[in-house]
């Protein structure tokens, strides 16, 4: 039983890391109704820029500020050259544009900072088990994973307040419902998109730092975005809270699945098991746990 709980807790904490990436998708989706395929590339770009700036001699805090500014610039440029010309186009067109954007950002990141793999350490936070938990329960809980969970909790709280309690947040939701109607009532669509892409850039930076510290800063950071997809299907594309709950469900299920079901089918099921879960979920609740149910009048 102790082993079961160790796998479960490890899975839940891994799930929080997926949620961090999923949050970026939710933000863009809430503001534009588009699944931003480039979110993984943004995570990679942010982490690579951060370590690149640090290599140039900047301290941690300054590198954080410079990278955030770089992400804001990226958001503004994306709005001006990719999104603005596509206002009122079908959502699939915007989705396709983000696919192109993903390749562009990946190439840009490696072009500017090179292809070398870099290490990244968050000062004072080691990815080691907490001795107290080991002594008390014999369960290894990573200090770093707990820190990441704390960061996610703060991020979710701030975003929840931002969306529900501020004028900008309400405007974001209006824009997501109908671009043209939002424009008609005087909501500055371009400003809203710039803001939301900048905030998504900040979330990508946080996710990039966490994943970069865990696995190193390298191209594979773009792959973590793929794990966000089942998280979003389960949690719902429009819900910040859904991204967290979906992440927890996926994290726990894939780890338990790998350990207890994996050996029956030769192992290595972590890659596809979350997608099977998402598929089953789609059959039962297509809008996800916290997603809005859309009823179209025909």
């Amino acid at each position: 039983m102790q082993f079961f709980f160790e796998v479960l807790i490890g899975g839940l904490l891994s799930g929080v890391m997926y949620s961090l990436v999923a949050l970026g998708f939710v933000l863009i989706y809430k503001a534009s109704g588009v699944f931003n395929f480039a979110q993984g590339a943004m995570v990679f770009f942010a982490a690579l820029t951060f370590v690149g700036v640090m290599e140039l001699g900047a301290p941690f805090a300054l590198a954080l500020v410079i990278t955030f500014l770089a992400m804001v610039v990226l958001g503004v440029v994306t709005e001006k050259f990719v999104l603005r010309p596509l206002v009122n186009q079908p959502q699939i067109t915007l989705f396709m544009a983000t696919i192109g954007l993903a390749f562009l950002i990946e190439g840009l990141a490696q072009g500017v900072w090179g292809a070398s793999v870099r290490g990244l350490e968050i000062p004072g936070i080691q990815d080691e088990p907490i001795q107290w938990a080991m002594d008390q329960w014999g369960i290894g809980i990573s200090r770093f994973d707990l820190f990441a969970a704390g960061v996610s909790a703060v991020l979710v709280s701030v975003l929840a307040v931002f969306f529900n309690k501020t004028r900008v947040g309400r405007a974001l939701r209006a824009v997501a419902d109908d671009h043209q109607a939002a424009l008609a009532i005087g909501i500055p669509l371009q400003n809203i998109w710039r803001i939301v892409w900048a905030v998504a850039g900040f979330v990508a930076l946080v996710a990039g730092l966490m994943w970069g510290a865990r696995n190193g800063v390298q191209f594979a950071l773009t792959f973590v975005a793929l794990k966000a997809l089942p998280v979003l299907i389960i949690g719902g594309f429009e819900s910040v809270a859904g991204a967290i709950v979906g992440g927890l469900i996926i994290g726990a299920a894939e780890k338990l699945g790998e350990v207890y079901l994996g050996p029956m089918v030769g192992g290595g099921i972590e890659g596809w098991f979350p997608y099977v879960m998402a598929l089953l979920f789609l059959l039962v609740r297509p809008e996800g746990l916290f997603g809005e149910r859309h009823i179209d009048r025909v």
Binding site: S14, A220, F223, K255, G268
Partner: peptide, 13 residues
């Protein structure tokens, strides 16, 4: 370990 291998908690447990 499933590709690309950026999650290995269950294997190492």
């Amino acid at each position: 370990v499933a590709h690309p291998g950026n999650e290995q908690q269950s294997q190492w447990l």
